[in-house]
Simulated assay, not measured.
Amino acid sequence: MIAWIEGELAARELGRVVLAVGGMGFEIAVPLSTYELLPDAGHPARLLTHLHVREDELALFGFATADEKRVFETAIGVSGIGPKLALLLLSTLPVPRLVEAVRGGDLATLTRVPGVGRKTAERLVVELRDRFADMAFGETGPPAAAGATPAGRREEGAVKALVALGFPRGRAGEAVRAAAGEASDAEVEELVRRALGALNG
């Protein structure tokens, strides 16, 4: 399997990047937590990767840290949790909070993730609690970090992320503006998390 890919970041969009390596471009799906740590296009970057194989598709998923990758690979082992929903888990909740919610059976936190209802949250707790209990988390090691993003771009990026998660643009915009008012220096990932808390509250 492909453990990691390092190359020039040819494209950087919410949820998707392209790494140019040896004359080829690898399209890689990434969670918001990883997206926020990547540099602008044209700079070198390195991602830990998971190759998801289906009968009709090969898809690459990339992560800034080993913790993110382990949580993703463990989550997709749960019945009914596919790669897209696993990415939403990581995009909505930081790894420590997600792991804590599973270990503690915190269904209220888990159901804040778009697409995760009570039954799915219960299944996550039942199937992942013991697996997470045996894992040590806290490893970092992200790719080259991007500099601070201008406020307007951060807010627009957060709105686009919420729209991609299924929220109407109007509601998403209001929630992001409120989040930005509470934390003016917050990056896209934090704005999305704060806005999700308000939208799902």
Rank of each mutant, 00 (worst) to 15 (best):
R54L: 11
R54S: 15
E55G: 08
D56F: 11
E57H: 14
E57V: 06
A59M: 12
A59T: 13
L60R: 06
L60I: 05
G62Q: 02
F63N: 02
F63P: 00
A66F: 13
A66R: 15
E68N: 00
V71G: 01
F72S: 01
E73L: 05
T74R: 05
A75P: 01
A75H: 02
A75F: 15
A75M: 14
V78N: 03
S79T: 09
G80D: 04
G80K: 07
P83H: 10
A86H: 03
A86Y: 01
A86C: 06
L87R: 01
L87V: 09
L87I: 09
S91T: 11
T92N: 09
T92I: 13
L93G: 01
V95G: 04
P96W: 08
R97C: 08
E100C: 00
R103Y: 04
G104Y: 01
G104R: 14
G104M: 12
G105S: 10
D106S: 06
D106N: 14
A108E: 12
T109I: 11
L110Y: 04
L110F: 07
T111M: 12
T111I: 15
R112P: 04
R112C: 12
P114Y: 07
G115W: 08
V116M: 04
R118G: 09
K119S: 15
K119W: 08
T120Y: 02
T120Q: 10
A121M: 08
A121E: 05
L124T: 05
V125M: 07
V126A: 13
E127Q: 07
E127F: 06
L128Y: 01
R131A: 04
R131I: 06
F132T: 07
F132Y: 09
D134N: 13
M135V: 14
M135S: 11
M135L: 15
A136H: 14
F137C: 02
F137Y: 06
F137T: 00
G138A: 15
T140G: 12
A144S: 12
A146P: 05
G147K: 11
A148R: 15
T149S: 13
P150L: 10
G152A: 14
R153W: 14
E155S: 13
E155R: 14
G157D: 03
G157E: 00
V159E: 03
V159T: 09
A161Y: 00
L162P: 02
L165E: 01
L165H: 01
G166S: 08
G166E: 11
F167I: 08
R169T: 08
R169H: 06
G173A: 14
E174R: 13
E174M: 09
A175Y: 04
